[in-house]
Design a protein around this nucleic acid. Sequence first.
DNA 1: TTATATGATAACATATTTGTTATCATTAGT
DNA 2: ACTAATGATAACAAATATGTTATCATATAA
Lengths: 95, 95
Amino acid sequence: MKQVKTFSEYMNDEERVSPAEREKIKFEIELIGKMVEAREQKGLSQRELAELSGVKQPAIARLESMKTTPQIDTLFKVLNPLGYTISIVPINAKK
Amino acid sequence: MKQVKTFSEYMNDEERVSPAEREKIKFEIELIGKMVEAREQKGLSQRELAELSGVKQPAIARLESMKTTPQIDTLFKVLNPLGYTISIVPINAKK
DNA sequence: TTATATGATAACATATTTGTTATCATTAGT
DNA sequence: ACTAATGATAACAAATATGTTATCATATAA
């Protein structure tokens, strides 16, 4: 008998994860994915991105390892040199 | 002779507003627009949205009047009952 | 082996947002 | 005129992220 929930099952259990939390987690996964990919694709180290963005390297490391939830300002500073920004979309505009 | 800059001219002056700041300001305008519109379209008062979102009414008021830059968590909590979420997009995916 | 670059972390101060409680001015309704 | 609802604000505590400086472990190159 199955006892352990998959990540997907866990995430969709509203008893444990509220819809808002779920969206936030999805966003963070999207963020880290695109951020790390774009940074490496541009051949930048965290220190170099720190230079370009004005966000210190420790903050970037904390961000990429999901140690903190970023501030909006920080988000824009880091994403800008990577060619990204953020936008508000209807919940069911899943891509 | 023209002495005063338009808002647009001001916003595009990189001497004054960095690209990251510009994206942030555009985002905040988009946020407030969609947020207020959706809230009123659903016939909700700030207090009712506070109930639904778990974010206190003073925080919502500060947000809608641009007194503060919201935390990511707060953003998701407030946008969720309004049917919105946020997403990361390439800078030149202007709609 | 030594030197260098990188990402992760620690520690502490600073900054900023939110929670909380209360109030105020304004507007709509009676 | 009175009442109720609404949005904006004030004040202070609590929470959390970032700046700053320094260090560590690991991988890579010489």
